[in-house]
Design a protein around this nucleic acid. Structure first.
Lengths: 337, 337
DNA sequence: AGATTCACCGAAAACCGTTTCTGCACTTTC
DNA sequence: GAAAGTGCAGAAACGGTTTTCGGTGAATCT
């Protein structure tokens, strides 16, 4: 690897001058600058970031600790962070703790040893997590917020997501709306349900069947729940039957659509279906394509990164930042007018 | 951040002794070593990796350049690399070039500036890619091999995958096997088909319908292809009809299953279905669950990383390393006996 | 007792590549 | 001929780790 000294030697100047020439500083004659630049190109000189880090005390790297790299939700967040870092001359060190706090601690130590300027911790699920406590560098919790309100967190507004979904169904002229949520062990399942119930209540409605159903995030649960609904005597009644279903995830919706199709229920004419997550592959692969609530996870990742960069600059902003969701409309819901 | 000097001061020794104590060197009395270790723990001392890197010329980091972070196939490879790095005291700097060679070049420069010890380049699709040429550090191409045979590459044996799939169907007692491949723009689509045809030929068979169908990797194509097959007059003939289908991907298989189900074709009794990729979510969410060829991508990533580490140690091994696939059996194929 | 050996430890320097501070020489201007 | 400015080089600093070398004291040997 060529060093600045090599460049300086080739250009016939001192390292000091070479440094100034390459960094567009004053006190260098244009011809000299030119000679240095040419020498640098000729030698394919790349300044050693590590050495600079020593001077500035900044490594220009952030630690990216994830908990389910193979999961559906971490990746978009990661992409957002990586994108924000790349445009800001920062690089991200990737670590996968796989949900294990021991692995997390191990990676944390390794990252601190590398003198990362900050950390983004991406949770495996949206429920709040234990804080890492005071660390020598700022930390932003993404997706899963920290339990400590003094920490910086960026997360999703699941309640608003549920509300948006129902409001859209109502706007489609639906009023007998069933709600099939996901795994009750997840806070998000409840929050989405709460938002949905709030929107129903605001319109003077109650969920079809009287209550929200909880199960799991799977297609299989979507199928079971739908069969349970259809088993009720008034399910397909023209006046009192279901005319809309809000699903806790695209996978659930996928199961729902399968059963509706099998039973000859027309979607969206007879029943409109709206789901959460907007997982392209599921949402566009199904028949009909799914209207779904998008959490804007990549945006969430970008925000997390930018907040971290601000904190590194000394402008920390404690508290939870909530990224609003929005609806992506497709065929499974039929908007009126 | 605490330095070695702080630790030495607290332990009442010199930095030299503290260094020797913490690095298990000779010339330190056991009691002294103990004092130093305790002081280090008390102060949460983490040696500055950057400072050491300057001395040794090794940064202990590798660059991880991916081309579709949100894609299905990069992630498992990434996980494998990250896992191998973590156990080997290395860290991975993540970059997403998003299929753009300009972005790739930019990230490459940034990584070289950070003095990474090596690079793993993960392709977006399995087709061979342009070599990056001679770089000051070793490079391993993962998933998408390099066109230059002197480079180090680790990739998938798609032909064997196709063979394995057909051999399994034959072992299930099937002999009238249709092959629905994916996007013909992908080499993998052809290689999988070639392997399938070879296995059929070895058993004295030809694909049902006379040829392999190419389309895209989508569910929609799986549905269309199946409908085309079923539209033939002898499709469901007891003697000459289809009794097995090999699909180019789980998504295609998903579409295939949907149509078979709609048409009342029993899977696996009447027709056995085998697919590629073993994407858990698709393979286990379908009815019946899919038998699928697994590419062992995480293993591929681990191999790539380990080969890179060997190259960094000076033991480079040019050439293409092919990771064998294997079958994961589920309900969609009915093994006999 | 005096000499020798040895284990243990500390001071100081080297080291990595870059930036920046300080000062010197030379030129231009009044 | 003094003052001001320009262009450049030398050397320190950055933050650690490691190494070299020499010194201390205790134990062993003569």
């Amino acid at each position: 690897m060529t060093t600045l000294a090599d460049v300086a030697a080739l250009a016939g100047v001192s390292v000091a001058t070479a440094s100034k020439a390459l960094n567009n500083r004053q006190q260098v004659a244009p011809t000299t600058r030119q000679r240095v630049v040419e020498a640098a190109e000729q030698l394919r000189f790349r300044p050693n970031t590590l050495a600079k880090s020593l001077l500035t005390g900044r490594s220009g790297t952030i630690g990216l600790v994830t908990h389910d790299l193979d999961g559906r939700f971490s990746i978009p967040v990661l992409m957002g962070v990586e994108d924000a870092a790349g445009t800001g001359k920062m690089s991200a060190l990737l670590c996968d703790a796989r949900g294990d706090s021991l692995r997390e601690a191990y990676h944390l130590q390794a990252l601190l040893g590398r003198r990362v300027d900050g950390l983004v911790v991406v949770g495996a699920r949206p429920d709040p997590r234990e804080s890492l406590g005071r660390l020598p560098v700022p930390v932003v919790y993404a997706y899963a917020p920290s339990l400590d309100p003094e920490d910086m967190s960026v997360t999703v507004d699941h309640e608003a997501g549920g509300r948006i979904g129902v409001e859209h169904l109502i706007a489609c002229g639906r009023s007998r709306i069933a709600v099939i949520s996901g795994d009750p062990a997840y806070g998000a399942a409840h929050q989405r349900a709460t938002g949905a119930l709030a929107a129903l209540g605001a319109a003077g409605l109650a969920p079809w069947g009287g209550e929200v159903l909880f199960g799991s995030w799977t297609e299989s649960w979507g199928r079971s729940a739908t069969e349970m609904f259809l088993a009720r005597p008034d399910a397909r009644d023209a006046e009192r039957g279901i005319d809309g279903i809000l699903c806790g995830s695209d996978q659930i919706a996928r199961g729902v659509l399968d059963v509706l199709r099998e039973r000859g229920v027309a979607v969206p004419r007879e029943v409109s279906v709206v789901s959460h997550d907007n997982w392209e592959l599921f949402a566009t692969g199904s028949r009909p394509q799914l209207t779904s609530v998008d959490m804007h996870l990549e945006d969430l990742g970008r925000r997390a990164a930018n907040r971290l960069f601000e904190a590194i600059e000394g402008r920390a902003t404690p508290g939870i930042d909530v990224v609003p969701s929005s609806l992506v409309m497709r065929e499974s819901s039929l908007p009126t007018g």
